[in-house]
């Protein structure tokens, strides 16, 4: 006799999974397959060490040592015609490799090409600022510091950009909880009212869909409102919603439902 298998959630499970499935990778091409990129790579190689280079989705990716980033970006801007730094930031690889991968996305409008310069730094290391080369790096490096805690040496104003200056923690780290840590949960209460107020204001209610019809402190059932703090039995009388006060308004006659007639017979 076959062993019994519970079938409660059999439909929720995947019907079939391939044991030998390998998720497809974006193919990497040799740099030699593109003349312009090959020339750019030669120019970079003449100045600094290149750890790895390939073409992926029509963009060249070059891995360099972190100490060479200013030199490489200066070379790309002045000699290779990559005049724009469209984006730069970091990727958290702390759990896997104990550090961050930093990328600089470069664009050449004349060549119509994009290059991505990548480098790996260990935890706690700083990078050289490229703010002197590209003004766009100013805020990007501040954001990188704000979100990952990576400092940029030589930056004129290395402060947080999105979070408050007195914030603790780096929100884009993979270890940072989405709903915030202890500091984040009490930030506004601590700052405005002080730590003593924590007991009075109470913790954050994170379940926004929570509705408790027996809680008359926070909720009011529409049409069955009771004074705040009343114990709710479930047999609350219906309150008619009126825009007007009981006494009425001068020259305006109040509509009275009791005096009105509802015609039930559609044929009448």
């Amino acid at each position: 006799m076959r062993a019994y298998k519970p079938k409660d959630n059999v439909q929720a499970k995947a019907y079939y999974t391939d044991r030998y499935y390998v998720s497809p990778q974006v193919p990497k091409l040799h740099v030699e397959s593109d003349e312009i990129f090959a020339a750019d790579l030669e120019a970079i190689k003449a100045k600094v060490d290149v750890l790895d280079a390939y073409i992926q989705v029509e963009q060249m990716v070059v891995f360099i040592n972190p100490s060479d980033n200013y030199k490489v970006l200066e070379l790309l801007r002045d000699e290779c015609d990559y005049t724009q730094l469209s984006e730069m930031s970091a990727i958290d690889w702390l759990a896997d490799r104990g550090g961050f991968e930093i990328f600089y996305q470069m664009l050449s409008m004349n060549k119509r090409k994009r290059i991505r310069i990548k480098m790996f730094i260990n935890k706690g290391e700083a990078v050289n600022s490229v703010e002197k080369l590209f003004r766009s790096a100013d805020w990007s490096e501040r954001e990188m510091f704000d979100m990952f805690g990576i400092e940029a040496n030589g930056h004129p104003f290395m402060k947080r950009i999105l979070m408050p200056y007195d914030w603790q923690g780096y929100p884009l780290l993979k270890t940072y909880p989405l709903q915030g840590d202890e500091f984040a949960a009490w930030y506004e209460v601590d700052k405005i009212y002080g730590k003593e107020a924590r007991d009075i204001i109470g913790p954050e209610l994170r379940d926004t869909a929570k509705v408790d019809r027996y809680d008359s402190e926070r909720f009011a059932r529409l049409g069955h409102e009771v004074p705040k703090g009343t114990k709710i039995t479930g047999n609350e009388p219906k309150n008619e919603q009126n825009y007007q006060e009981e006494g009425g308004v001068f020259m305006i006659k109040k509509f009275d439902k009791k005096d009105s007639v509802v015609v039930d017979d559609p044929q009448r």
Partner: peptide
């Protein structure tokens, strides 16, 4: 209630 922004910020 914070709405759909159930986040740290």
């Amino acid at each position: 209630t914070g709405g759909m922004f159930n986040t740290y910020a």
